[in-house]
Design a protein around this nucleic acid. Structure first.
Length: 513
RNA sequence: GCCUCAGUAGCUCAGCCGGUUAGAGCGGCGGACUGUUAAUCCGUAGGUCGUAGGUUCGAGUCCUACCUGAGGCGCCA
């Protein structure tokens, strides 16, 4: 029966002396036993490039050309395997069932391709249709669809080249993040998704309750009695794991969280979601500069990992952008391709400027003088609008920018007050096209200063006693930041709408699937 | 939440200053061809022009409201 398939080699490598039993687990044997035949992933077949052996592949038909050529995709790679059907001897009924979208198993010999466009192909000897796909009802065609249309069929969009690439890259980014922190000895901390604290200070929250919405139990004064609720108090979905991460860092030294985050803001933009994923490292015994270094190193590590491991997918996403930009006027096209942009980020230090320096740059900038800004920069202390951030990143510096030492008045209570008593040790990292991708700070570790700020900003001190305890018992300088995972995916993939880089987006008025 | 733009066949789109029977490509269906690369060729079906009003002799086209989508702004990651 010839050579064992490549998956059998893999199993030999994995299980050592069990290789003999593995060799018997070949397609025909397994089939006779009523077992699912073992398959080889298309990514491995194409990567190995070997020919002259039999194997089995499984996947979904992308196109069936000329009654003869199946382009088969199993999601392991962007590329399809060409499966050649001997149509002259094939059952007509089988050929009828080989339609775009159908799921099949194909068994046959891997040979060098006669045609151009692919090195390998499979001469199919046996084809089994797992699931037919009615071509009239199936919404995906072998053609370009709009991203908006695909968003409406998010359950099927994984089967397109673009979304296959996006979600493979998304996986690699997640992996690279864990890899980065693990190598540096960080502890992955799971902060709670349900929180009883309403002082996380990051916007509107989603309530979590099991109370009857029509007839909730009431207190004597007629308000909803949350003491009768599941947790005995009002609870919400988390808007940040930072406060809990700080507790972990003040014992484990270096921790990070990576989990879903929920914000009930009525945000309708290409860079906001109601449910998104956030990475929040928190580090003891460091200051703001260490924090900036950590963030920059992490972003570069991720970008390098993606360039090294997702070449095909990034190349596809890049050519997508090139096609898209052909419809734009010359001046709106990007100066760099996707890969050039990512490489540029690796090769150059991020610009680091204080808020005060940024205000000076903006004040004397051409758009400010010509009154092109909707919100002109007049004096120190104003919050920067996205038009200002875009000017700094895209026009003035032309690379990622870290802004730091913001006015205390426009930042959160937990950020450390600087010596000038006017600014806090906060930092935001701004990326071209996306804006704020990281927001962080050195934390206020001095008990008296923190308590004073909480009272001034009307944070319930009693309820937050557990947070203040860390400053009472062995407090240390520490710092951390939050990284918006989907915003990072936007940057790395070159996609422009955040709803297209998360499998099933949630935003105001929409929670399908 | 505010502002701007859009909604025409299953998908992507054209439809001029309001004018007579609503157009293409892809996809579907029928056939031909058989080493194709979103195969090609021939034929064919498919539309209450987002919804409801209004203006007009006449509305896909103009006006109003609503619905849906996209982009920008705010909030932020």
């Amino acid at each position: 029966m010839g050579w064992p398939n490549t998956d059998d080699f893999w199993l030999i490598g994995r299980v050592g002396r069990h290789c003999l039993s593995c060799l018997t687990l070949r397609p025909n044997f397994r089939k006779r036993q009523g077992m699912m035949p073992r398959r080889t992933k298309i990514a491995r077949l194409l990567a190995d490039g070997n020919t002259g052996f039999d194997t089995t592949v499984m996947g979904w038909i992308r196109t069936f050309r000329n009654n003869q050529f199946i382009a088969l995709n199993d999601g392991s790679t962007l590329h399809n395997l060409q499966v050649v059907v001997d149509f002259e001897n094939a059952d007509a009924e089988l050929l009828r069932r080989l339609t775009t979208g159908a799921a099949i198993r194909a068994t046959g010999a891997i040979v060098a391709s006669q045609g151009k466009g692919q090195a390998l192909e499979m001469k199919a000897r046996d084809i089994e249709v797992f699931g037919e796909c009615d071509p009239e009802a199936y919404p995906l065609q072998p053609k370009k669809h709009s991203l908006e249309f695909l968003r409406d069929i998010a359950h099927l969009r994984f089967r397109t080249n673009t979304f296959g690439a996006v979600f493979r890259v998304r996986h690699h980014v997640a992996w690279a993040i864990h890899d980065f922190f693990h190598r540096r000895g960080f502890v992955y901390l799971h902060s709670p998704v349900i929180t009883g604290s309403d002082a996380e200070g990051a916007g509107e929250m989603f309530r979590v309750t099991t109370l009857d919405p029509i007839n909730p139990p009431l207190t004597e004064s007629g308000e909803v009695d949350f003491k009768k609720d599941f947790f005995g108090k009002a609870t919400n979905l988390t808007v940040s794991g930072q406060l809990e991460a700080e507790l972990g860092a003040l014992a484990l030294s270096e921790v990070y969280t990576f989990g879903p985050t929920f914000r009930a803001e009525n945000s309708n933009t290409t860079r906001h979601l109601a449910e998104f994923w956030m990475i929040e490292p928190e580090v003891a015994f460091v200051d703001l500069e260490d924090n900036m270094n950590l963030a920059e190193d992490m972003l570069k590590h991720i970008i390098r990992h993606v360039l090294e491991n997702c070449g095909d997918d990034i190349a596809l996403l890049e050519s997508r952008l090139v096609e898209e930009e052909k419809n734009k006027p010359q001046q709106e096209r990007s100066a760099m391709t996707l890969r050039e942009k990512l490489q540029f980020c690796l090769d150059n230090d991020f610009a680091r400027v204080t808020y005060t320096e940024a205000i000076d740059i903006l004040r004397i900038s051409t758009p400010n003088k010509k009154k092109k800004f909707r919100f002109p920069i007049e004096e120190w202390g104003a919050d920067l609008q996205s038009e200002h951030e875009r000017y700094l990143v895209e026009k003035h510096f032309g690379r990622p920018v870290i802004l730091y030492n913001y006015p205390a008045k426009i930042k959160a209570f937990y950020m450390r007050l600087n010596e000038d008593h006017e600014t806090v040790a906060a930092m935001d990292i701004l990326f071209p096209g996306i804006g704020e991708i990281v927001g962080g700070s050195q934390r206020e570790e001095r008990y008296d200063v923190l308590r004073q700020k909480m009272e001034a900003m009307h944070i319930p001190v009693e309820e937050m006693s557990w947070y203040l305890d860390t400053r009472r018992f062995g407090t240390v300088p520490h710092a951390g930041f939050g990284l918006g995972f989907e915003r990072l995916i936007l940057f790395v993939t070159g996609m422009t709408n955040i709803r297209d880089v998360i499998p099933f987006p949630r935003f105001p008025g929409y929670a399908a699937f």
